[in-house]
Nucleic acid binder design. Structure first.
Length: 261
DNA sequence: ATGCCCCCGGTTCGGGGA
């Protein structure tokens, strides 16, 4: 089974590109972020025609997440618990039945957090990460296969960006963000990509500006985290960077893993 | 040091992204 994550930067602008990638890559589950659409306007019929069940958690104009799955959803939960005031659509969990039990998959879009001196931005990011850590600790007590897929807006290590010096002071790279990402992993998650390679220069995002893609000035901020029970069934991870070369690309590319189920 | 570019809403620009 192939499980993917991709920040598509707007479903309206990316409709054809997303459809083409789905046809070629044929994931069983695709977690999408930044759909930038309300649920009613999400073009679900296009994906249903490819055999996907579609669940969205959108809002007007920005943010928004979705899960496409060839397996039917047993259960869907929208929104990250822990703050009744938070109205930003950044979190959706789907529950599935596999041959040997349950599989939980989350599509998450973690706040960017810039600028760091604006509490409405950076503090919101850090509080959101604290809530994600608390929610994940609860879920891990179930001792079930769980995959947290998404755009974390965190550059975990120096080797995950082209020029670490230029990212100093950025919300994606500040110690408060990186330590919380480490804290999340230390609950018991395995980061899919880093199980197979520690080489640098593997990125999932290249800015539209300043010719970042042709110069390979990228950052690795889209991650797949596996619970211990999911890690037992993990069979490898890859990044479809070739999609960044397509016409009208997202600034992010898909990352996916193989899962034995 | 800042902006480059892109998407959205619904307008000819501002908010948001990273």
């Amino acid at each position: 089974m192939k499980i993917a994550s991709w920040n598509i930067n707007g479903i309206k602008a990316r409709h054809d590109v997303v459809l083409e990638w789905l046809k070629q890559a044929d994931p069983d589950i695709a977690c999408l972020q930044e759909i930038k659409s309300v649920d009613e306007n999400f073009p679900r019929a296009s994906f249903e025609a490819l055999g996907y069940n579609v669940e969205t958690h959108g809002q007007k104009g920005f943010n928004g997440v979705a899960i496409l799955s060839k397996m039917p959803f047993d259960e869907v939960d929208r929104g990250l618990p822990g703050d009744e005031e938070d109205e930003q659509a950044r979190f959706i969990e789907g529950v599935f039945s596999t041959r040997d039990g349950v599989l939980r998959v989350v599509s998450l879009y973690l706040p960017n957090g810039n600028p760091p001196d604006d509490p409405r931005k950076f503090d919101y990011k850090l509080r959101w990460m604290d809530r994600l850590i608390a929610w994940s600790a609860d879920r891990l007590e179930l001792e079930e296969p769980l995959i947290l897929a998404g755009d974390y807006n965190v550059i975990p290590q120096d080797e995950d960006c082209w020029d670490p010096a230029s990212w100093q002071g950025d919300a994606l790279f500040l110690p408060q963000s990186r330590s919380r990402f480490e804290q999340l992993k230390s609950l018991g998650f395995t980061e899919a990509l880093r199980t197979s390679t520690h080489e640098d220069g593997i990125y999932t995002f290249w800015d539209y500006q300043a010719g970042a893609w042709p110069k390979n000035h990228g950052i690795r901020i889209d991650h797949l985290l596996l619970s211990p029970e999911a890690t037992l069934r993990f069979e490898g991870c890859s990044v479809d960077s070739y999609v960044r070369d397509w016409e009208k690309p997202s600034d992010h590319v898909p990352i996916w893993l193989n899962y034995a189920a």
